[in-house]
Design a protein around this nucleic acid. Structure first.
Lengths: 262, 262
DNA sequence: TGAGATGGTTCATATATTGAACCATTGCTT
DNA sequence: AAGCAATGGTTCAATATATGAACCATCTCA
């Protein structure tokens, strides 16, 4: 692996830790030597991708990504386009709704509209969504070409709860069902007591751009309710796709070869 | 310079080009060999920092920074906090107002609220703001320690218009005036026909976090008006700072040693 | 005050980066 | 249609660069 990949992996690791971290800790988390980790951090800091705190000497994500993200959004306004639909779906369903995007070979949460109910599901921005253990991941992979599904099906499937799908056959079956329904459902696969329904946001090209997902406490979500959420999510996904790609599709372009999911 | 720095510089260069660019062009823009540029682009793409378009094979900024930016904002909500004040200042002044942030040794625009008037100033998100040629830069540097001012004063000062400050003495004088007024003014230093007033957003620590700036067409902005804009900007900056750092200042922390401005 | 963390640094060694020259494809000109 | 010029992409020997074990300096806490 090249130095750049290692540094970006470090950045990624840092982004997944939701607190400020020390040198030794982050080096360990990335499997890097302390000296190496430090050189990476210094170079990343030079460019504003990480910040070091003056007093504690700990490191955290910097503000350069905010700038780059804004530039990206200004030219390719995925969030701006999608958020109103996310909000609407949250109001319609009454449950927490989150938007995820596929990037760098992984699916991750980029926006959350929290349910206004007291008893609700919490999801942090930046959360990674494994294909086998989340409704989002399943919806995404089901909308990908079969070769992507297959790659995911033969990959490792860590169990997060007793309900997580951990074998390829069950996974493939779930993909088939998702393709039939037009939305995916995941019952407690990631966290006990949570049920989610998700739909992929199609893009011109072979892979969808991301997903929109309703996450609800299991206790108030019966079969009919989750079906309603799923259908609403599918409708919202389709509206987002149309809003984003429908009209001025003049050479927005679609990326290629991003290494496949799985 | 290390490989990581070179790759991040490439990413930065790409972000400053407001269109999709080809391999040869970006290699030239970064002063890199084609082969090197390509390896960088491939590694950056693996992590979602750039995207390659399937049809034209050109490259553009990817969506990974959006994710990282969102995580950063979720934990350190500078934009979320500041934008309402930016908007309010736009409404109050009737002119385009932009918010800039200091990161990676440079000041750049992270948010713009456009004036609703037909004749107004346009600023793109991501625009770099040189210290010697913009009200924002001046406001920022004037709020920094003297050593930062001095470093900027002895650096190169490219002229963007006939009105750009290009010598150290005039620059230092402008810093003094800015410190007296509590806001900076720049008259056509970056672009002919535009006058701006800016104030730095203070942070606990030696350097401010960024600036808030009113940019107006020169033709309708007399001395009294620009003073009004400047005072409003200073008031807004102070409110942002208070909103962001005032209340729960419990170990938000402030970064150190980001290589100084200039 | 001393043992155990932690942040940070050094430098010989090992490894990854580099770029000139190359090929393949496309689009333009004659 | 042939030829030319540009562009994207690749190769591999030369070399600059990254690496990490061992080191030092602080800090904390008993």
């Amino acid at each position: 692996m090249g130095t750049i990949s290692k540094a970006l992996t470090l950045l990624d690791t840092l982004s997944l830790m939701d607190r400020d971290v020390g040198l030794t800790e982050i080096a360990a988390a990335c499997g890097l030597d302390k000296a190496t980790a430090r050189r990476f951090l210094v170079e990343l800091e030079r460019h504003g991708f990480v910040e070091q705190l003056a007093e504690s000497r700990k490191y955290r994500l910097g503000s350069a990504p905010v700038r780059l993200g804004r530039i990206r959004e200004a030219r390719f306004p995925f969030l701006k386009t999608a958020i109103p639909f996310v909000r609407q779906l949250m109001e319609e369903s009454g449950e927490t709704v989150h938007l995820s995007e596929f990037s760098g070979g992984r699916l991750s949460t980029v926006h959350v509209e929290d349910s206004t109910k007291a008893h609700r599901v919490f999801i942090a921005v930046g959360t990674l969504l494994p294909f086998h253990a989340t409704a989002s991941g399943l919806a995404f992979i089901a909308a990908c070409p079969d070769k992507d599904v297959e790659r995911a099906a033969i990959g490792p499937m860590p169990a997060f709860t007793d309900h997580t799908t951990t074998d390829g056959a069950a996974f493939r079956q779930a993909v088939v069902q998702t393709r039939i329904d037009g939305y995916s459902v995941n019952r407690q696969g990631m966290e006990a007591g949570v049920i989610s329904a998700s739909a992929a946001i199609a893009a011109p090209g072979s892979r969808p751009i991301g997903c929109i997902t309703v996450a609800a406490p299991l206790v108030r979500t019966d079969v009919a309710t989750i079906r309603r959420h799923g259908l609403s999510a599918a409708a919202a996904a389709s509206r987002i796709s149309e809003a984003f790609f429908g009209v001025d599709h003049k050479e927005q372009g679609t990326p290629q070869r991003g290494r496949g999911p799985g």
